[in-house]
Simulated scan of single mutants.
Amino acid sequence: MSEKDHRRLLDTRARSPWRIAEAAAARRRRSLLQGRDRILVIAADHPARGALGAGRRPMAMENRADLLDRLMTALARPGVDGLLATPDVVEDLLLLGALEDKLVIGSMNRGGVQGSAFEFDDRFTAYDSASIVRMGLDGGKMLCRIGLDDPATAGTLESCARAITELASHGLVAMIEPFWSRRVDGTVAHDLSAEGVIRSMHVGQGLGATSAHTWLKIPVVDDMARVMRATTLPTLLLGGDPGETPHRAYAAWREALRLPGVRGLVVGRALLYPSDDDVATAVDTAVAMLEVE
């Protein structure tokens, strides 16, 4: 993104906010898989939960112009299918013209701010079903952390179920990201054993009045072949933050992408903030993984 583009974006935000709706209405859309077996979606909804870190950089995502620049680089690479983000990021990229012929999945529940006393309260503070329909997006994504000892989980389950039903009534994807979670020394931690992921999948895929348009978004863990036997729903792999060992993460992704039912990757920080800051090469590496037999 050039300095001129950045200044134009700032000016449009201040003077002509209606152009966001105009850009959404005019956006060229595409089908979900569009003749492909697997897709790559770039995720950028972490900042809305106050989660700005990537690798060893605790404030990596603090600069919005830098984030947008990285996103535009990633979205322009051949083989990148779309974006998963909150309204603020989606709208910036709409105004910059970066979402033509891309899938756009709106992130819905960002209320569980990282590190807060209410982190399990994943209430819907971003997109809702009506706004996803109004903006012409292709679906909505929900975080669903299941904390057996936290009463806020009940509200999260009910809200996610309602959103899945509403999105399905419009034929839109409901992307559910379930975790079996608990607090460890005051910090929310996920059970990333095969058993923990399988339990979370069964709860997640049972939400809503129909699962016809539900997709799962799950982490890559040990024994993924066993994990994928837990569902018949289309499943995307969560990239997460590989830290200083991206080669290990990439190897695990490659292996999991070969499994039946896996329909691609949803990756954010690992591709937007690689250790060498070469976004294009990181994205191209992920795209190449999708071409598996």
Rank of each mutant, 00 (worst) to 15 (best):
P246C: 12
F124E: 15
M61P: 06
S193P: 03
R134Y: 13
D150N: 07
A249Q: 10
R56D: 15
D45P: 11
D138I: 10
A251I: 04
W180E: 01
T187P: 00
S193E: 00
I176K: 02
A44Q: 07
V188F: 02
S181K: 00
K217T: 02
M108S: 12
Q114W: 11
C160P: 01
T232R: 15
A270H: 07
R56Q: 15
L272Q: 10
A280P: 09
M224T: 00
G79D: 07
P242L: 11
A168H: 10
R28T: 12
D122N: 15
M175K: 06
P17N: 10
A54T: 09
R28S: 14
R199E: 09
W215L: 13
T245N: 12
D138G: 08
M175N: 03
A189M: 10
V89S: 05
P178M: 04
G115S: 11
A282N: 00
L94G: 01
T281C: 03
D191R: 00
V90Y: 05
R56W: 12
L148A: 14
R49V: 11
S31N: 11
T231D: 02
G196K: 00
L103G: 03
R13S: 09
T165M: 09
R7C: 12
I198S: 08
Q34W: 04
R29P: 06
L271H: 06
R248L: 12
V262C: 04
L94M: 04
A43F: 01
L33E: 01
Y273W: 15
R30H: 02
H46A: 13
R8I: 13
P87T: 11
R15Q: 14
T156K: 08
E62K: 15
R134C: 06
D81I: 05
V197R: 02
K4Y: 14
E158R: 15
S181E: 00
P151H: 09
Y127K: 10
R226H: 12
N63Y: 15
R263N: 06
L236N: 01
E293A: 08
S193Q: 04
A76Y: 05
Q114F: 13
E100S: 07
T281Y: 04
L94T: 04
S116T: 13
D88S: 12
L265A: 05
D138N: 12
A161N: 01
I218Q: 02
E91F: 07
A225C: 00
A270R: 07
S16L: 14
L290S: 03
R183F: 01
H213W: 11
A43T: 02
S169F: 04
Q34R: 13
A270G: 14
L148T: 07
L148W: 11
G82V: 00
L40M: 01
A126R: 04
P274C: 09
G147W: 10
W253R: 05
Y273E: 02
R27Q: 07
S193A: 02
G79A: 07
S107H: 13
C160W: 06
Y273R: 02
A54H: 08
V41L: 15
G82M: 00
L265E: 06
L52V: 11
Y127R: 04
L94A: 02
Y250K: 14
A161W: 05
P219A: 07
A65N: 13
R77N: 10
D223Y: 01
F124I: 13
A126S: 15
A154R: 12
R123Q: 13
R13Y: 14
E100M: 04
A163H: 06
H6I: 14
R64W: 12
A117S: 12
